[in-house]
Computed example of a mutant assay.
Amino acid sequence: MKAYWIAHVDVTDPTQYSEYTRRAPAAFAQYGGKLLARGGRSQAMEGRATPQRSVVIEFTSYEQALACYHSPEYQEACRYRESAARAEVIIVEGVEV
């Protein structure tokens, strides 16, 4: 069953954050991740205010999504995001249709 990363990000240092966005896609690709949404238009309909960026990444399985998040490649990319953005990342298993 597929799984998805859902991330909400508010960027505080665009220059530093660009280093994260330059490195992270290689980790996603290594674990079969497919970007479905990355920072396009969005509007909060309920709940908290709309973040600057919303990201959705599809993986072939929950295990692959977790492996990608915990991988050395992705954790290296995260070092560049830590001081450049506030992020919420959730990994959720999909449903069979």
Results as ranks from 00 to 15, higher is better:
Lys2His: 12
Lys2Pro: 14
Lys2Met: 11
Ala3Asp: 02
Ala3Gly: 06
Ala3Asn: 02
Ala3Trp: 03
Ala3Glu: 01
Tyr4Pro: 04
Tyr4Ala: 08
Trp5Leu: 08
Ile6Thr: 10
Ile6Leu: 13
Ala7Leu: 05
Ala7Cys: 03
His8Gln: 15
Val9Pro: 00
Asp10Glu: 09
Val11Pro: 00
Thr12Arg: 14
Thr12Leu: 11
Thr12Lys: 15
Asp13Asn: 13
Pro14Trp: 04
Pro14Lys: 12
Pro14Cys: 05
Pro14Glu: 14
Pro14Gln: 12
Thr15Asp: 13
Thr15Gly: 09
Thr15His: 09
Tyr17Asp: 01
Ser18Thr: 05
Glu19Tyr: 01
Glu19Ile: 02
Glu19Cys: 04
Arg22Gly: 05
Arg22Cys: 04
Arg23Thr: 00
Arg23Asp: 00
Ala24Phe: 03
Ala24Asn: 03
Ala24Ser: 14
Pro25His: 06
Pro25Tyr: 04
Pro25Arg: 08
Ala27Trp: 00
Ala27Gly: 05
Ala29Asp: 10
Gln30Gly: 05
Tyr31Thr: 02
Gly32Ala: 08
Lys34His: 05
Lys34Gly: 02
Lys34Ile: 12
Leu35Trp: 07
Leu35Tyr: 11
Leu36Thr: 05
Ala37Gln: 08
Ala37Leu: 12
Ala37Asn: 06
Ala37Pro: 02
Arg38Gln: 09
Gly40Pro: 03
Arg41Glu: 14
Ser42Leu: 08
Ser42Gln: 13
Ser42Cys: 10
Gln43Asn: 14
Gln43Phe: 12
Ala44Pro: 05
Met45Pro: 02
Glu46Met: 13
Glu46Ile: 14
Gly47Asp: 07
Arg48Gln: 14
Pro51Cys: 09
Arg53His: 11
Arg53Ser: 05
Val55Glu: 01
Val56Ile: 15
Ile57Phe: 01
Glu58His: 04
Phe59Lys: 05
Phe59Asn: 02
Thr60Lys: 15
Ser61Phe: 10
Ser61Glu: 10
Glu63Met: 08
Glu63Leu: 10
Gln64Arg: 14
Gln64Phe: 11
Ala65Asn: 06
Ala65Asp: 03
Ala65Glu: 05
Leu66Pro: 01
Ala67Leu: 08
Ala67Glu: 11
Ala67Gly: 09
Cys68Arg: 04
Tyr69Ala: 09
Tyr69Gln: 10
His70Phe: 10
Ser71Lys: 05
Ser71Asn: 09
Ser71Gly: 11
Ser71Val: 06
Pro72Asp: 15
Pro72Cys: 07
Glu73Asn: 02
Tyr74Met: 01
Tyr74Cys: 01
Gln75Arg: 03
Gln75Tyr: 00
Glu76Pro: 01
Cys78Pro: 01
Arg79Glu: 09
Tyr80Cys: 09
Ser83Val: 08
Ser83Met: 11
Ser83Phe: 06
Ala84Lys: 03
Ala85Lys: 07
Ala85Cys: 13
Ala85His: 06
Arg86Ala: 13
Arg86Pro: 01
Ala87Pro: 00
Glu88Asp: 15
Val89Cys: 10
Val89Tyr: 08
Val89Lys: 05
Ile91Ala: 12
Ile91Arg: 08
Ile91Leu: 13
Ile91Phe: 07
Val92Tyr: 06
Glu93Gly: 14
Gly94Glu: 05
Gly94Ala: 12
Val95Thr: 11
Glu96Arg: 10
Glu96Val: 14
Val97Cys: 11
